[in-house]
Structures are given as C-alpha cells and as structure tokens.
C-alpha cells in the first residue's frame, strides 16, 4: 500500500511538472511579400540591420527572416543589409564571389557593434541596447521587432529625393518632426541601399557546392550620405514638439548603383545609447 502511495505521488508530481505543447504544421504563420511604401509614416517603425556576407552559408536564412518580418509588418519594418567582416570578403569564396558589397559605413558600424566578430548571421534591431549588447540573433529578430514596435512614435521623417540620371547625383531633403519635447541629443543617419543585385551567395540549404549563382541580394548598404554616424538633427538644441528640422544631403552614385533599385533610408537615434527612435525609407526614383 505504501509503495502504491509513493508511486501515485511520483506520477502526480510528474504530471504537475510535465507540461508541453506539440505544434502541428504549418509552423510558419506569417511572412511573405509586402509592399514597401513611402516615407512620412506616423507610426513607430523599426530598423533591422542584417549583418551578412556572400560567403556566409547561414545568411540567406537570416535574410528570409527579415523579409518575412517585413511581410508581417509591411513598411513599419525597414531593412539594411550590411555586408561586413570575413564572410563579405571578395575573391575568397570561389569563382564569381568577386563583388565587393562592403562599404566604409558598414565596416565602421560592424567594428563598433562587433557583429561579425561574434559571427554571421547576426543583426541589430533598432540598435536597442541590452546591457551593452546590441547584437540579436536572427531567430530573435521577430520578438525584438514586436517589442520595439510597441514603443511610442516620437518622430516623423519625410524624405524627398531628386536624382539626376545624367550626373548620377542624388539630392535628398530630410524633414524630421518630433512629436513630443525631448531633452537628449539626437542624430540622423541618411544612407543609400540597393535591391535586386544578382550575384552568387553561399547557402547551406542547397545541394552541390552550396552556391546560389543568381541570388537576389536585397537592401544592400551602399553608403552614407552624411557620414558614418550622421549629424545632430537639431544642431544642439533640445528637440521641440511640432517643430520641423530640415537637412539637405547629396551623393554621387557609383557606376554599379542602379538608381531604380535604390532607396534612401534615414533614421534618428539617441546619441547617448545609439538606439533608434524612428526610421523610414523612400525610393530614389518614383
């Protein structure tokens, strides 16, 4: 009888502690295609910086994660593909891998945040600082984006582009309108990204030599229009609610930058901790 009681106790305790959820397919419930809109959004948007490289076999999966998040949240998610570190080195991963997707700005950011040092793929979500650690593994981008989107809408960014196809010169006008009075210092970084660059990419999901010859590289960071860390938005004064702060920048496109596939991405961040309060993007050509 005693043995029976003890056995019952074990089973009861086991049942109490044993909890589980078996998930049935389909496991994926969101994602897919989404239209990217224009700037001037009046919602809090989130930036995913996908630190990647064409030689990184796990990076296409991360790119899919980011793309899926854009599919879920539409234009509230903005992506920059930062090619930096060893896996982005040209001429290292076999024939065809000679394109240099790296940029000076991307390299500076990568060094500062230490992303490729930790390993690719990895990324930053709104450059949100978790006790000194900015790096977020791709499988956590979803929950991080979800969390960041819940933050207050603090600034509206409007981007107007004027591209001269003859001179390949892009003039951009940026208007930042704060929604409340703020006291910290805020800077704005304005950069150019490019979609649809067809070039080889390593991918461990494909057979053979693990190379996709005609991979579609999206959101590739080309460079910054106002330096690696941008410029103070308000020229030193405390941001005032309702006041519009205007900036003008220009950049000359390199020969291989296809204007019709390019976007201007602008984001405002707190200089103290580098964390974004808003991001938006606008196509270079209509």
């Amino acid at each position: 009888m005693k043995a029976f009681k003890i056995l019952s106790l074990i089973v009861a305790l086991g049942m109490f502690f044993y909890a589980c959820e078996k998930i049935e397919a389909p496991y994926k419930i969101g994602g897919g295609e989404s239209e990217r809109g224009s700037s001037g959004d009046t919602t809090k948007n989130v930036l995913i910086e996908d630190y990647t490289g064409h030689g990184c076999v796990n990076c296409p999966v991360a790119a899919d994660f980011a793309h899926d998040l854009q599919g879920v949240y539409g234009e509230r998610v903005v992506i920059i593909g930062v090619h930096a570190g060893y896996w982005a080195t040209p001429g290292t991963f076999g024939p065809g891998f000679d394109t240099d997707f790296r940029s000076q700005t991307g390299n500076t950011w990568d060094t500062y945040f230490g992303v490729s040092n930790v390993g690719n793929p990895n990324g930053l979500v709104d450059r949100a600082d978790d006790e000194g650690n900015y790096i977020v593994t791709p499988t956590n981008w979803g929950s991080q984006v979800d969390e960041r989107l819940a933050n207050d809408f603090l600034a509206k960014i409007t981007i107007e582009n004027d591209f001269n196809a003859g001179t390949k010169n892009l003039n951009t006008n940026i208007k930042t309108e704060f929604q409340i009075n703020l006291t910290d210092d805020y800077s704005i970084i304005v950069c150019v990204t490019q979609d649809s660059i067809i070039a080889p990419q390593k991918d461990n999901r494909v057979g053979g030599d693990g190379v996709i010859e005609d991979y579609d590289h999206m959101h590739v960071l080309r460079g910054s229009m106002n330096g690696d860390w941008g410029e103070n938005v308000t020229n030193g004064e405390d941001p005032v609610s309702g006041k519009t702060y205007e900036k003008n920048y220009s950049i000359k496109f390199e020969d291989d930058w296809v204007a019709d596939d390019c976007w201007v991405v602008a984001f405002v961040y707190n200089e103290a901790n580098k964390t974004l309060i808003q991001v938006d993007e606008e196509k270079v050509t209509k």
Partner: peptide, 20 residues
C-alpha cells in the same frame, strides 16, 4: 521530467511556450 516556459512573441513562427 523537465519543462520550460517561454512566451511566444514571434510574429512569423508558431512557437511552443511549454517544452518538455
């Protein structure tokens, strides 16, 4: 028997909150 609970905050994948 061990079980862990973690909230599912992923907007793309249906994640099990309790894994044993």
């Amino acid at each position: 028997f061990v079980s862990k609970y973690q909230a599912d905050q992923d907007p793309i994948y249906k994640l099990p909150r309790n894994v044993s």
